Amino acid sequence: MKRIEDRIRVLIVERGLTLLQLANQSNITEATLHAILNRNDAKYSQLKRIADTLNVRVAYLTGETDIPSMSVVQESEAGYVALKADDVIAMQKQIIELQNRLLQYNHNQ
């Protein structure tokens, strides 16, 4: 069971909620919740609000992990890291620069 909608439906049953209650508590419209459940059409911000309401991680809803709620320490042990986009871009530029230097070095040998 890896589909977002399946996980949400199981969690609302386990929590004793209705779809309307989940929508209201997540601060999304019922129509948006139905779109997520029926068309797998969700923005990260919507999934985050749903996950917070259901007391699980977004990674659980999306099927990236089978552990519903992980502490930050457990999450990092599972291989998840949060980085700012600017940091990722800077690292990518460094990698490209190192690759170019390696290619130049190999070409000169």
Results as ranks from 00 to 15, higher is better:
38 N>K: 12
20 L>N: 14
32 T>A: 10
49 R>D: 06
53 T>Q: 07
33 L>Y: 04
76 S>G: 03
68 P>D: 06
44 Y>Q: 06
77 E>I: 08
84 K>E: 08
73 V>R: 10
65 T>E: 00
74 Q>H: 13
85 A>G: 06
77 E>G: 06
42 A>L: 03
16 G>P: 11
76 S>I: 14
40 N>L: 03
30 E>M: 06
87 D>F: 08
45 S>G: 06
75 E>Y: 01
16 G>R: 07
63 G>W: 10
25 Q>I: 08
21 Q>V: 13
86 D>P: 05
31 A>F: 07
76 S>H: 13
34 H>C: 03
31 A>E: 10
33 L>G: 02
30 E>K: 12
75 E>P: 02
93 K>E: 14
39 R>V: 07
84 K>R: 12
47 L>S: 05
101 R>M: 10
72 V>F: 13
101 R>I: 03
14 E>T: 11
12 I>E: 01
68 P>N: 07
20 L>A: 15
82 A>H: 09
31 A>K: 12
35 A>F: 06
97 E>W: 14
21 Q>H: 13
57 R>T: 02
20 L>R: 15
66 D>G: 05
59 A>R: 03
30 E>S: 13
40 N>G: 10
101 R>C: 00
17 L>C: 12
77 E>V: 09
24 N>G: 00
70 M>L: 09
63 G>K: 07
44 Y>E: 09
93 K>I: 10
81 V>P: 02
17 L>G: 11
98 L>Q: 12
102 L>G: 02
64 E>W: 00
16 G>V: 10
13 V>G: 01
82 A>E: 15
68 P>I: 03
99 Q>R: 14
41 D>V: 01
87 D>L: 10
52 D>E: 13
86 D>K: 09
39 R>E: 15
62 T>S: 10
50 I>W: 08
30 E>H: 10
65 T>A: 04
17 L>E: 12
18 T>I: 12
77 E>K: 11
73 V>Q: 06
42 A>N: 02
43 K>V: 03
89 I>T: 15
19 L>F: 14
13 V>W: 01
91 M>V: 11
85 A>T: 05
95 I>W: 08
75 E>C: 04
38 N>E: 13
96 I>W: 08
17 L>K: 14
84 K>A: 07
75 E>N: 02
65 T>D: 03
91 M>Q: 14
69 S>W: 02
70 M>C: 08
67 I>A: 12
23 A>Y: 02
33 L>E: 00
59 A>S: 15
23 A>F: 02
43 K>P: 00
42 A>H: 04
14 E>P: 06
99 Q>W: 04
63 G>P: 02
34 H>A: 11
80 Y>T: 01
41 D>C: 05
78 A>E: 14
103 L>F: 10
92 Q>V: 13
40 N>P: 04
74 Q>K: 14
95 I>T: 12
82 A>Y: 15
68 P>R: 02
52 D>V: 11
51 A>H: 07
59 A>K: 04
90 A>H: 08
64 E>V: 00
71 S>Q: 05
